[in-house]
Amino acid sequence: MNILYDYIYYAGAFGLIFIGIFTMMVKRNYIKVIIGLSILETGVNLFLISVGYISNGTAPIFSNPGIEAKNMVDPVPQALVLTAIVIGLAVLSLALSMAIRLYKHFGTLDLQQIKEQRW
C-alpha cells in the first residue's frame, strides 16, 4: 500500500505523458494531435506539482494565523505550473487557429493527405 502511495501520482502523470506523446506520434488527424498535446501538457503539470508535494502538508498560504510554515508544500513548482498552463493555452490556441486555416486551404485535417497534395 505504501509503495502504491509513493508512486501513484507519478504513475498518473507519466501515464498521461505517454498517452499524449503516443497520440501525437500515431494519429494523423491534426486536431487529434493537438488533443494529444493538451494531454501531454496536463501530464507534465501534474508531474511538476507532485514533485513539490510534502506528506501531511498544507497549502502555502498564510490564510489564518494558526498555520505553521514548516508543513507547507513547495511553492516553486506551483509557480512554474502556473506559467506552464498559460503557455500551454497560448500554444494550443495558436495551433487551433492554424487548424482553421488548414481546413480552409486543403479541405481536410489529415496530415498524411496534406503532405501528398502539397505541390
Partner: peptide
Amino acid sequence: SGLEASIKYLIQGSI
C-alpha cells in the same frame, strides 16, 4: 507550404 511547415514546426517544437 508555409502553413504546412509551420504545423510541422509547431508539433515538433512543442514536443
